[in-house]
């Protein structure tokens, strides 16, 4: 295979494939770093497992208090988890944008270089 053909394959197939792999790794890493899947699974679980046990069935007053406390614990848990989920998703969007710029930039690089050379020569003369 000629060196020129090898260079073309490397530029437009090999390296983009590696960029896609690295991009996917960053996306998966970020999701795990912020524990997004785990936080979604346990989204309405009580905060730090702070819960009261319900009393006897006719102890309505205590059971109502327990219910309110447990609901608050779940609400606090959901609020704090959503905070981390949102940060994780924002970073995920950032990684998607940066990855897209790098991926498309790499594919467009040879054309940008040719354009840059023509632009530079035009400015000179």
């Amino acid at each position: 295979m000629s060196i020129f053909l090898q260079a073309l394959i490397w530029q437009f197939f090999d390296v983009p494939k590696e960029i896609l792999k690295a991009w996917r790794n960053f996306l998966v890493f970020n999701l795990n770093y912020f524990s997004v899947p785990t936080l979604l699974k346990t989204f309405i679980s009580p905060w730090r497992k702070y819960v009261y046990r319900y009393g006897k069935i006719f102890d309505i007053k205590n059971n109502f208090g327990t219910f309110i406390f447990n609901m608050m614990s779940r609400t606090i848990g959901a609020i704090l988890r959503s905070f981390f989920i949102i940060i994780g998703l924002l970073v995920e969007v950032l990684i998607i944008l940066i990855g897209a710029i790098i991926f498309l930039g790499w594919l467009a690089l040879p054309f940008l270089l040719i354009f840059g050379l023509i632009f530079g020569i035009k400015l000179l003369f």
Binding site: I3, Q6, A7, W10, Q11, D14, V15, L109, L113, G116, L117, F119, G120, I121, K122, L123, L124
Partner: peptide, 29 residues
């Protein structure tokens, strides 16, 4: 200024080309 910008653009293109060539040799060949 135009000429200086033209020259710096050409040198940037040459630098990036040399870098890509080096990467092609080291990573592929």
């Amino acid at each position: 200024s135009k000429k200086l910008l033209g020259l710096s653009t050409i040198f940037l293109v040459c630098y990036l080309s040399a870098r890509i060539k080096g990467a092609f040799f080291n990573l592929k060949l």
